[in-house]
Each structure stands twice: as structure tokens, then as C-alpha cells.
């Protein structure tokens, strides 16, 4: 199975402090489902400004959790919603973002048990 999350940055940033890694990953795991729900809701409501903001917030968190593929998708969603261009692509990008992010969340939960 492909690995989506990479804790290299967090380990380097914290000096492999497991308490801090656990704290940041747990915060990410707690906030991500709501963020994904918001993204789907704003897309169905065609609320592009809110969609841009939600994708922007998720993007920076994905960066620190090393979820590069989802970060790229969030960047594209943020740009398309912000510029209101290629909006027809969002219908495909958002399910991909959700799927990869949720798989990354499962991996991160596993990582927490190994720390």
C-alpha cells in the first residue's frame, strides 16, 4: 500500500520529541474531518471564497504532516476556487483530496501507536 504521510519534518522540527509529535498529529487528526466536510459543503453550495479558505487551512496542515499528494490537491483547489477558474475540475479533485487525506490520517494513527 502506498504511504501518504511522512513525519520526517515533524521529527526534525521537534528533535524526535514524541510528546510534541503526538500533540501536533492529534490536533491534525481532530480538525481534519471537519475541514473535509466543510470543503465538500462549500463546493456543493458553490461558496468559492469559503472553499478557498478551507482548502488553504488544510493545505498548511498537510504540509507539516508530510502529506505531499493531498497538499498539491489542496493547493489546486484553493487556486481554482480563489480564481474561480476550472471549477468543473473541483468535482474530481475534492474526492481525491478526501480519500488521500483520510488514508494519511489512518497512517498517522498507526504511527502514533509506534512512537
Amino acid at each position: 500500500m502506498a504511504s501518504f504521510a511522512d513525519l520526517t519534518f515533524l521529527k526534525s522540527f521537534t528533535g524526535s520529541d514524541t510528546a510534541k509529535i503526538t500533540k501536533y498529529v492529534t490536533m491534525f487528526l481532530n480538525s481534519t474531518p471537519k475541514c473535509l466536510e466543510d470543503i465538500k459543503l462549500y463546493h456543493s453550495n458553490q461558496d468559492w471564497k469559503s472553499l478557498k479558505t478551507a482548502a488553504h487551512t488544510l493545505k498548511s496542515q498537510l504540509k507539516y504532516m508530510g502529506v505531499a499528494k493531498a497538499e498539491e490537491l489542496a493547493t489546486t483547489i484553493e487556486r481554482n476556487a480563489g480564481d474561480q477558474t476550472n471549477l468543473d475540475q473541483l468535482g474530481a479533485l475534492i474526492p481525491d483530496l478526501e480519500s488521500i487525506t483520510l488514508q494519511a490520517c489512518d497512517e498517522l494513527k498507526d504511527e502514533l501507536t509506534k512512537l
Binding site: 510534541k20 490536533m27 480538525s31 496542515q61 507539516y64
Partner: peptide, 13 residues
């Protein structure tokens, strides 16, 4: 910052 993860990481740093 309304991003709690970044705010906490920056605070700790």
C-alpha cells in the same frame, strides 16, 4: 492564527 496546529508549533518553537 486560526490554524491551531501551526499556532501551537510556532508557540512551542
Amino acid at each position: 492564527d486560526d490554524d491551531p496546529v501551526l499556532a501551537e508549533m510556532l508557540r512551542d518553537h
